[in-house]
Design a protein around this nucleic acid. Structure first.
Lengths: 255, 255
DNA sequence: GTGGGTTTTTCGGAATGAGGGAATACTTCT
DNA sequence: AGAAGTATTCCCTCATTCCGAAAAACCCAC
């Protein structure tokens, strides 16, 4: 979220700010938006009316909200990923086999983004909604993806986002991260030991395209008590690796 | 898609047109967009650069595409619906029990919109993506919703959209539709007998809020050969009705 | 019903920014 | 290297965005 004032088309940026404010407030009136935005009420009113006519915003009396149009467009964006269709069934199977939360993650706009999440028996759905972003340097799928990326791309991402410390386990030095990525690269699997959130461990494997560039990662996560010992070191990693292998094969046969 | 030239903020409408063109073309260059849009290349370039900076569009060299940001925002829009969370598990259960495709549908912007779709054993995923719109007058969930709406709202929807004929079974006269809605209202269940697409039958029940206004519908659909006779008349309708009842109860206990 | 407080919507005017066309930079193929 | 096609920049003009204030709509209590 750097400077967003230098866009060529300012009015579109204003509309985007209105949408963003609607996201934060869930549902808002014009006066509420007026408090959260550096614009006059009449301006906000114009943009809301425009966005409503275009179908991006719905109003219930005086409460404005973002519409499901975003979901429709988002579905198109998601279906574009060749990983998606074969990934869904693979993630479901992985969730069932492990009993944990399994996700499909891709990289877009230098961020990790969740495409799909399936839940196993003993999992609570705390996060992992489609479209949700997750940091790359301190999650299992994020690190798995970084490990197969071109070094210059990794540099540009780390330079842009830094290595924010989420927990005491977060790797915050570039050297430590590089060493870890080397490790992940040689083993073909990435671990997250409560580096992002307390009491959440994760395991992930990246899936590369034919050029070696990453197309996504498949991952599972769970509270620490269900992810420790041999289960964390061998059993679950085995499931993840074979899922990733099946996915690679499915992708290769498709195109 | 009526006149969209009279929006207060024209630049936002232009950006929306660019996004829409990107949806149709899946992925496009500036010159391709130039052919599909009544704007100069420099204008299109400005809007694409703006949309990219705002995160709504991504580019891979010269191919522009809509981004997963829409999915993220769409998720927020979807989670706003109180029907969604309890509906997902109900739809899954219904899909498993029936072996067919089950969906959760709501009304927004005078259209039926699919919130979630689950698939049973013998179902192919031909349509039903989240965010997908479906006509109201010739689908089971659509008719179920119309049947519990206030008459004036039904009028305004029919007036706005008409009764387009999709197949020879589509109800195209207002009188026939009204009679059908009456029927649905008294039975509490709606049927679609290939009125929208050939060889697709559907069954749905609406879920009303405390004020009687509809909050959504739960439905199943399948090719005709698996939906006929007693199965179509009794077995599946029974499953749908009990699902809807459980959903009503779940909604009532939540708030 | 009637009226006050609140919120939305309309209206005009001034400054700015959107948009078109042509020129330039870039990439890719021959 | 040259050519063809593409993206990007530049500049100028007219339309438009944006604001502030006034008007209208709405909700509440009385």
């Amino acid at each position: 979220m750097a400077d967003r004032e230098d866009t060529p088309v300012k009015a579109t940026a204003t509309s985007a700010r209105v949408i963003e404010a609607l996201l934060e407030l869930e549902s808002a009136t014009i006066t509420e938006l007026d408090d959260h935005l550096p614009h006059s009420k009449s301006t906000i009113h114009s943009h809301l009316e425009t966005l409503e006519q275009l179908g991006f915003v719905v109003r219930d009396n005086w409460a404005y909200q973002v519409s499901l149009r975003f979901l429709e467009i988002g579905s198109v964006a998601r279906n574009r990923y060749p990983l998606y269709q074969p990934g869904v069934s693979e993630v479901r199977q992985l969730a069932t086999a492990s009993g944990l939360v399994a996700s499909l993650v891709v990289i877009e706009r230098q961020r990790g983004i969740c495409l799909y999440t399936a839940m196993g028996k003993k999992s609570d759905r705390s996060f992992g909604d489609p479209g949700e972003t997750l940091p790359l340097h301190c999650t299992a799928p994020g690190k798995a993806l970084l490990a197969v990326m071109a070094p210059e791309d990794v540099d540009s991402i780390i330079d842009g986002h830094g290595l924010r410390e989420y927990t005491e386990n977060t790797l915050t030095s570039r050297a430590a991260l590089d060493e870890e990525l080397q490790d992940i690269q040689s083993r073909g699997i990435a671990f997250n030991r409560e580096e992002w959130r307390e009491d959440v461990r994760g395991i992930a494997a990246a899936v590369e395209g034919k050029t070696g560039s990453p197309v996504g990662a498949i991952s599972v996560r769970s509270p620490t008590d269900t992810m420790s010992g041999k289960r964390f070191q061998q059993d679950i990693p085995g499931l993840v690796i074979s899922s990733a292998n099946r996915l690679r094969k499915a992708l290769r046969s498709e195109r």
